[in-house]
Nucleic acid binder design. Structure first.
Length: 252
DNA sequence: TTTGTTACTGCAATTACGTCA
DNA sequence: AGTGACGTAATTGCAGTAACA
């Protein structure tokens, strides 16, 4: 395996002040390299030891100070510029993976929320049916003599069954609105104590709720930037102020 | 104090190369 | 041996900031 090094011949290559000295790797891992002017092979993979050191340094600080950079470069037999570039690329890779993680968390949150919403919708339908039955029953029995539910009425649907906990003995509690039900003077309608609030809370919400407003921030610490991540924050990832699409379109 | 210049650095996007299936 | 996909080192362009005249 023949490797060649890594001296940029491009005069436009940006050179930082402290790094302009021509550099030849001295470590053993690069001892087989040689400088060539003609070769375009100016890119070599770093050795495992180099990567290991860089990784461990990256764990403590994602940005390397100039002095530290030069010291690290000396230790690893690299150019300071290479160390800087490695950190730069590493930050970019980390950010990309962090975006994937954040996306997965948000998707899981959304799925959970959508599931809860569907359940609530079914519950609402059951309650509406129950209300209709109660109203109908009240009209048929103006004196409040009401047959126990589940006996004189049609069999409840599965949803209703859930709502009634499958226990017909709980009619008392289930018909609580009935106990406080009043018949209007003309006997043409009923007024439920909680009717207004119920409507407000459930039945008038015909429009689908804005799930986005309900999404809870993930408790996972991966959504918050660790100290020093600085610009790797996820803020604004889903800023839609300037775009027309919705982020959940991806999996809807 | 304000302004223009320079040097340095970070990031995003991209290119170019090495490796592997 | 040839090739496409993928990972990654390196380049480029631009923007922000600090130091300085």
């Amino acid at each position: 395996m023949t490797l060649e090094i890594l001296v940029s011949e491009d005069p436009n290559t940006r050179m930082f002040g402290e790094e302009e000295e021509e550099y030849f790797p001295s470590s053993e891992s690069f001892s087989f390299m040689r400088k060539t002017k003609s070769s375009k092979n100016n890119k070599r993979r770093f050795s495992d030891e180099q990567i290991k050191s860089l990784e461990s340094m990256f764990e403590t600080e994602t940005r390397v100070e100039p002095k530290k950079k030069i010291q690290l470069a000396r230790e690893l037999g690299l150019q300071p510029r290479q160390v800087a570039i490695w950190f730069q690329n590493k930050r970019a890779r980390w950010k990309s993976k962090q975006l994937e993680r954040d996306y997965a968390i948000l998707r899981a949150n959304y799925n959970s929320l959508a599931s809860r919403y569907e359940n609530l919708k079914k519950e609402k339908q059951g309650l509406v049916l129950q209300l209709q039955r109660l109203k109908k029953d009240a009209v048929q029995n103006p004196k409040g003599e009401r047959q126990c539910c589940g006996k004189s009425e049609a069999a409840p649907s599965s949803n209703e069954g859930e709502l009634e906990n499958g226990d017909s003995n709980k009619c008392e509690s289930q018909v609580k609105p009935i106990s406080s039900m009043e018949i209007s003077e003309h006997g043409l309608g009923v007024v439920l104590d909680d009717d207004i609030s119920i409507k407000a809370e459930y039945f008038q919400l015909e429009d689908e709720p804005n799930l986005m407003g309900m999404v809870e921030p993930a408790g996972d610490s991966s959504l918050t930037s660790p100290e020093g991540w600085g610009s790797l924050e996820s803020d604004g990832l889903f800023d839609q102020s300037s775009s027309g699409y919705q982020w959940w379109d991806f999996w809807s």
